[in-house]
Design a protein around this nucleic acid. Structure first.
Length: 808
RNA sequence: GCGCCCGUGGCGGAAUGGCAGACGCACCGGACUUAAAAUCCGUUGCCGCAAGGCGUGGGGGUUCGAGUCCCCCCGGGCGCACCA
């Protein structure tokens, strides 16, 4: 049958759906001892059209899911939609379409495109975060976390746009203005909700060692968490106040010549109230945009009228407000030790402060031996810290700080999960009662793009009785960060219709953790830390078990066009849907898998690659056509011709190799090249081979099954043509036959002093001695051995090589 | 600045310390064709007529043997970025 993907693929997809071949079992249906595999791809945002990045991601996942099914695993392979967030709201403002309508239409559109790719998703498990049967569980979990003290409210500085009446993300602020409208943006403190992620900082760090994740992602997370051991200590001020600092180098305490505090530090704010010059300095630092602070590292400070008192010497050291001290790390205050800290050094030079050396070591910033430190002189850094803490008493203690911040989840937006709390004049901020969930988003609101979120003016939403005292109160109008939605969605897939709980523990126990998670590297920190954090919370709530959600992670590379990212603005998008309409899904899938290793970028320079994939599929079709059918049994090995035997050896070696590539190495591109090599070997079988029909039939049946994960439509087609009943995707993955893994005669390479000098053929059964003798006797090697002394002969395991070492 | 990753033909890439360049793309030559497309066969790392030599960014090291492991340097990418 000719290769006609455009008519054949939809027909085959229909057969798969009718058979229910993609359906994953519920925990109760799983037989005891059955192997499960949870294949997960990252939750997509329904932007409207799929792009090549999706195609690559979903193809990788599908190859794995289909392979595991054929290997006898029960497979979970779902998809859903990250369907809250700003773009829908912006579309509503621009086009006057309600976000829900826009979102639903986009999901339908993209689902249709994904279906055409033949990805084996169990669509009965689809979830969409904008639906209240999903986001009610965000609210439910929020309340559980509230009860456990994992949620708190605090003031935090945000990018505030007065004209728009909303908070903006850092990426949306360019040159101190809203990138869309140009309205000015200022920094403003705002009362917000936070998840206490720092509570799990140590565990998040410690569990990372056991994860089968790319090393660079693990490193990024370690840096993000940023654990740092040191000490806190309190300095008295001559104003009668105290300032607490965090330092990793308490041993340098005797080198302190100044104190530097963040411009936002309470002590500075208090001093600024009566010091206009200091106030002006702080305002000037605050006015600098994010980028300006990043690009200029010039140290700036302003001396206050206050001094700190050194706890050992009683000397007074000046106290500065400084631009290089961050309020949200440590205590927002630094003890300035210019001789042993690069930043303090720069600062001291600029402001003419003393730079006394108190540590003797290889470089100024290293640990070493104390000098000029009174009674501590002569001690090693480590023992000095212990001694100083002892002497400082209540003033100091060892402590650990983290760069990881608590997760601010408030968004002053409409299109997100309403935070289920109520503001009551009498009771304060009160959590909603669980039985009143979900707190639904009101639908009858207008989107103007100006002023605060429509929730703040929607009385049907706002007016609600206080859950505690019952008096009239006002609903919270903040909604949740969409990262909340994507932090546990993969557990909802396991039990998407549950109305009692977000998911049943039994389902989680049966399927969790995810065996393979595939997605973009851009989620290396935020999403993948939040999801790990959530899992630990869920575990502590008794909803989930086990420490970590994602056993293995693969970050796929991007799909580029002519070296740069595909984007609407560049007009360089290659639309997957159009490619499928022209070449078919299998050709696209094959190309995506073959073009590069998963983690590397693919540059879509032209259509040559996909045309190559098409050629390969067509050639296979012709091969199966020409072969027809054979019912002859495969003859015994002894009866086969040499060519037939070597074809079957190639076949079985390929089975072994591809199985390993897919099961252990997760190396997909070589799966395709392995298939291509094997197809070349099949084509080379002589037309007059004595058992051609039987051998080809046997080899093709295995071949078609092996190509099925990558090119499933063509595989089904050829499977039928080979006279096989049932679906190829439900057939068993071929098992390598040990009798055909090695040829009777094997090639042995002969090296002399590390250089290849000859090749000999020996029986596979040859002993080490026989191999050594044969190698020494080989004429090409002989010419390099003549007149030289043989030092030793190495026969590495595997028997494929003999290495002769000579002298003279 | 700190950290991580990567440098292999014209291109994408393969090689799990053991024959470097599998497989594909492109190119070139040939067959089929009135012609073209499609298809099929073949060549293609570099130097050399050849024998042979050289070759995985550069230099050093470990090893019988290094693209692969270790050290230094060069080039590219990514992440974090005054983290006390």
């Amino acid at each position: 049958m000719p290769f006609q993907p455009l008519t054949q693929e939809p027909e085959i997809q229909r057969r798969w759906l009718e058979t229910g071949a993609f359906r994953a079992k519920r925990a109760s249906e799983l037989l005891p001892g059955s192997k499960t595999f949870y294949m997960l791809v990252m939750l997509p945002y329904p932007s409207g059209r799929i792009h090549m990045g999706h195609v690559r991601n979903y193809t990788l996942g599908d190859v794995t899911a289909r392979f595991r099914r054929m290997r006898g695993y029960e497979v979970m392979h779902p998809l859903g939609w990250d369907s809250f967030g700003l773009p829908a709201e912006n579309a509503a403002i621009k086009n006057g379409i309600h976000p829900a309508i826009w979102t639903r239409a986009n999901i339908e559109e993209m689902k249709g495109q994904i279906r055409k790719m033949g990805i084996s998703y169990d669509w009965d498990r689809e979830v969409a975060s904008f639906q209240d049967d999903y986001y009610r569980w965000n609210q439910w979990l929020f309340l559980k976390m509230w009860d456990r003290g994992d949620v708190f409210r605090a003031n935090r500085t945000v990018n505030w746009c007065e004209a728009l009446g909303t908070v903006l993300a850092n990426e949306q602020v360019v040159d101190g203005k809203d990138e869309r409208t140009g309205h000015p943006v200022t920094q403003k403190p705002l009362e917000q909700y936070f998840f206490k992620t720092t509570k799990y900082a140590d565990e998040l760090l410690a569990c990372m060692d056991g994860l089968d994740w790319p090393e660079n992602v693990k490193t990024m997370q370690r840096h993000w968490i940023g654990r740092s051991e040191g000490a806190r200590m309190a300095f008295d001020l001559d104003s009668g106040e105290q300032v607490e600092v965090f330092t990793t180098r308490l041993d340098t305490l005797c080198g302190v010549t100044f104190m530097a505090l963040s411009t936002e530090h309470p002590v500075i704010e208090k001093a600024a109230a009566s010091d206009p010059a200091l106030k002006a300095f702080c305002d000037q630092v605050a006015a600098l945009s994010r980028e300006e602070r990043l690009t200029s590292d010039e140290k700036l400070g302003h001396r206050t009228s206050v001094s700190a008192i050194h706890p050992f010497t009683g000397e007074k050291v000046p106290l500065f407000a400084a631009n290089y001290v961050l309020m949200d790390y440590g205590t927002g205050a630094v003890m300035g030790v210019p001789a042993h800290d690069e930043r303090d050094f720069e600062f001291a030079q600029k402001y003419g402060l003393a730079i006394p050396k108190v540590i003797e070591s290889e470089s100024a910033w290293d640990l070493g031996t104390l000098v000029n430190s009174g009674e501590f002189t002569g001690m090693k850094s480590e023992e000095a810290v212990t001694a100083m803490i002892a002497k400082l008493g209540d003033r100091a203690e060892r402590t650990t700080t983290y760069k990881l911040k608590d997760w601010g989840l408030s968004r002053q937006r409409y299109w997100g999960t309403p935070i289920p709390t109520v503001h009551c004049a009498a009771c304060g901020v009160v959590p909603e009662k669980p039985e009143n969930l979900p707190v639904r988003l009101p639908e009858d609101v207008a989107f103007t793009g100006v002023g605060p979120s429509p929730l703040t003016t929607c009385s049907s939403f706002l007016d609600t009785p206080c859950p505690s005292c019952g008096k009239p109160a006002r609903r919270e109008t903040d909604t949740m960060d969409t990262f909340v939605d994507s932090s546990w969605y993969w557990l909802r897939y396991l039990d998407p219709k549950n109305t009692e709980l977000p998911f049943a523990k039994a389902e989680c126990d049966a399927w969790s953790p995810v065996d393979l998670y595939v997605g973009g590297i851009e989620h290396a920190t935020m999403h993948l830390i939040y999801a790990r954090y959530f899992y630990k919370v869920l575990r502590d709530l008794g909803l989930a078990s086990g420490p970590e959600p994602f056993k293995k992670l693969i970050c796929q590379g991007m799909v580029l066009k002519d070296g740069s990212k595909m984007s609407k603005s560049k007009g360089n998008i290659v639309d997957p849907d159009e490619v499928i309409s022209k070449y078919g899904a299998d050709a696209l899938r094959l190309f995506m898998i073959f073009a590069a290793p998963i983690e590397k970028e693919i540059d879509w320079t032209g259509f040559e690659g996909i045309e190559g994939a098409t050629r390969f599929l067509k050639r296979l079709g012709r091969m199966v056509d020409d072969h027809g059918l054979s019912a002859d049994p495969l003859p015994a090995k002894e009866q086969l011709s040499a060519e037939e035997k070597s074809l079957l050896i190639k076949l079985n070696q390929t089975i072994a190799r591809l199985t390993d590539d897919l099961e252990r190495r997760y190396q997909f591109n070589t799966v395709v090249s392995g298939l291509m090599e094997l197809s070349n070997a099949l084509a080379d079988l002589p037309a007059d081979a004595p058992h051609r029909g039987a051998v080809l039939q046997y080899a093709l049946e295995a071949f078609v099954r092996m190509m099925s994960p990558v090119a499933p439509h063509v595989a089904e087609q050829l499977w039928s043509q080979l006279g096989k009943e049932g679906l190829c995707m439900q057939a068993t993955w071929p098992e390598a036959d040990a009798a055909y893994l090695q040829a009777d005669e094997v090639l042995v390479v002969v090296q002399v002093n590390g250089k290849v000098r000859g090749r000999i053929t020996v029986p596979a059964t040859a002993t080490e001695d026989q191999r050594r003798e044969a190698a020494l006797a080989c004429p090409e090697a002989q010419s390099h051995l003549a007149g030289k002394e043989i030092i030793k002969v190495v026969l590495p395991p595997g028997g494929k090589l003999v290495s002769i070492v000579v002298k003279g």
